[in-house]
Amino acid sequence: MTPHPKPPLLSVRNLSIRFRTGDGMVHAVNDVSFDITRGQKLAVVGESGSGKSQIALSIMGLLARNAQAEGEILFDGSNLLKLPTSELNNIRAREIGIIFQDPMSSLNPYMTIERQLGEIVELHEGASRSTARKRALEVMDAVRIPDARNRLKSYAHEFSGGMRQRVVIAMALMCQPKLILADEPTTALDVTVQAQIMQLLDDIQRDLGTSIVLITHDLGLVAGFCEDTLVLYGGRIMEQAPTLEIFEKPGHPYTRGLLRAVPNIGDPAAKLLAIPGSPPNQRRAIASCPFHPRCVDAVTDCAEKLPQLDGGNSKRACLRPVEELT
């Protein structure tokens, strides 16, 4: 493999996440590896249950108690999965920020926005109350909340959904982290507000050089925002490639199926080609391609062998050569 031009900022190596539940083990993430470089915008695409959010949570050390994570998440030479909470707290917010899907439940209803933003720099950087207030005001301006000085005194419920998500982005930006994990940041928002928030994230990446991981199910959003895309299914990476290639020369039957199943507003004539069947049961560890029961291109080998993620700049995990796919 050719060496990366830039060393990776964060490197996920053979990450597997399992959950112990009353019904047995749930294999949420299986052997996932990828890198994020400085200033990169990476999309992690998948349907519900594909494990995309659990990857973000494991990076932040926020996995549920019944989770077991294996593998490595390397950041600045240390494995985040093994760090004690006290050391992890030096990385959370300062180095890696996270934006959740639902802005209302990510904010404390009892705290003013000023306290909520200020608390972050007081805790992580030991800033004084007045420095914290000044920084909160700057960041509120940066995320373009109008009348920021007065709005600092408000509580979360006094903001609209789009403004709340701006506050949550402001929280993630308080310590100017190198990496922001955005877990479905616009799913709870309307399209016109979504456009505003995506523009804001784009500006942040450009102005501050922050790397952004966009976790989403919306392929339209990915097309307009990220240079690179990683497609997950059943907790495994199916394909990882530059976004342009994912859309124009998708190399995996699942990616192809997804693209054909989305109604394209510009091309209504095309009939929607649904992917038959339903998502995999993750109660069992699967030793074959997780997509094979729904795959139109599956051959007998697909049910027996586990395809490895191969390739240089664009990688795919499929036993069949690209040319043979329908």
Binding site: S160, T192, A195, M198, L219, V222, A223, G224, F247, I265
Partner: peptide, 25 residues
């Protein structure tokens, strides 16, 4: 017009310029 310009198009080559509406509902 504003609503339609904000819809993300699943085509990385399409340069969409969402017409950002000021203010809130």
């Amino acid at each position: 017009q504003a609503l339609l310009s904000a819809v993300p198009v699943p085509d990385p080559r399409a340069k969409s310029t969402p017409q950002v509406l000021e203010g809130d509902l």
